[in-house]
């Protein structure tokens, strides 16, 4: 019998797509029950979103001022309390910055090992996970006699459907929270565009874009097709765009249905971040760019001529 607790990832009152994908991953376990834990200052709204996910039995929300800005130090004690109360066999987090931060803390407090980035479920205690930036895949067997702690690699799963109706309950916990970690501020990049980590369509630019101003053409095309915008490390290092737009081994690993890149040569570090994309389209002036070796569609040309032509062809 396996019962799974999923730690919800959410921001600004919205449940993340990564959480929906973790729920879908849990369905592959032949789980008897899947519950979701929402930690928030006021979690009723996020809990309602979580309760709609197909396959979920119960959503519990812990409302506490400390969870206004989720931090591992204060989230972990409440996750432990929920685990103890629910008697779960598995606890899954997302591979978002919150999940990556908190889940190892939870595992160590439980005294158990952890699996990072589940990408395939063979069975309740047997999984695949990527190593070496996705250049190798390990099949890992975990012991059945202890709680299994893991994060789920969003790029490897579809989001759960939203046709469920799980029970929602407010979970009052007494666990004491440490005061040694204090939130100061967040500088989130405001954007009307889809989230880069989970968007179905992504448009990126590389050093070939040439400047911060020139990146405007990338944004234009992305907005035209409802895509998120990303960049290669070279473009980030050149200062064209902020760090959190970086796609690749040391940035975000993404798996959109459609990935279109302009002026990106295709360094290994970048390819590691996009190899699970559905369809890869590459536009580059250099016909010998390595990106063309993995692209489904390649077009040799100047991006400043190609992008306007693409926009015309789209209309």
């Amino acid at each position: 019998m396996s019962t799974i607790l999923i730690i919800a990832d959410h921001s600004r009152g919205a449940l993340s797509v990564a959480t929906r994908k973790a729920v879908r991953c849990a369905a592959d376990f032949c789980a008897d029950a899947v519950d979701i834990l929402v930690l928030a200052e006021d979690g009723a709204d996020v809990a309602a979103q979580a309760a709609r996910l197909a396959g979920v039995r119960r959503v519990r929300h812990v409302d506490h001022p400390a969870h206004a800005h989720p931090m591992a130090a204060t989230a972990a004690p409440h996750i432990l309390a929920a685990l103890e109360d629910g008697g779960y066999s598995h606890v899954l987090g997302t591979n978002t910055s919150f999940g990556k931060d908190v889940m190892p803390r939870v595992a160590a407090l439980l005294g158990v090992a952890m699996l990072t980035d589940l990408m395939h479920v063979h069975g309740r205690y047997q999984f695949d996970r990527p190593t070496y930036a996705g250049n190798a895949v390990d099949t890992v067997v975990a012991p059945e006699d202890r709680v299994l702690v893991a994060t789920v690699r969003a790029a490897s799963f579809e989001p759960a459907a939203e046709n469920g109706a799980a029970a929602i309950e407010n979970f009052a916990v007494a666990a004491e929270l440490p005061g040694h970690t204090r939130f100061v501020r967040a500088e989130e990049h405001d954007s009307e565009r889809p989230d880069l980590g989970t968007a179905a369509r992504v448009v990126t630019g590389g050093r070939g874009v040439g400047s911060e101003q020139n990146f405007g053409v990338i944004y234009d095309l992305a907005d035209r097709i409802g895509a998120a915008v990303g960049a290669s490390r070279a473009a980030v290092d050149a200062g064209y765009v902020p760090n959190d737009m970086q796609v690749g081994q040391t940035g975000k690993i993404i798996a959109p249905e459609l990935y279109i890149c302009f002026g990106i040569s295709g360094a290994i570090q970048h390819l590691a971040g996009i190899k699970d994309a559905g369809t890869i389209v590459a536009v580059n002036k250099d016909a010998d760019a390595p990106i063309f070796e993995i692209a489904d569609y390649g077009l040799v040309g100047d991006l400043f001529e190609v992008i306007p032509a693409l926009k015309r062809a789209l209309s």
Partner: peptide, 25 residues
């Protein structure tokens, strides 16, 4: 407690096609 039973290469992407114009793309 965790045992790696096998290490394999990832799925390989097959090469695609080159198109000659934005319209074709």
């Amino acid at each position: 407690s965790l045992r790696v039973t096998r290490t394999t290469p990832p799925r390989v992407r097959r090469p695609g096609i080159m198109v000659d114009s934005p319209e074709t793309l």
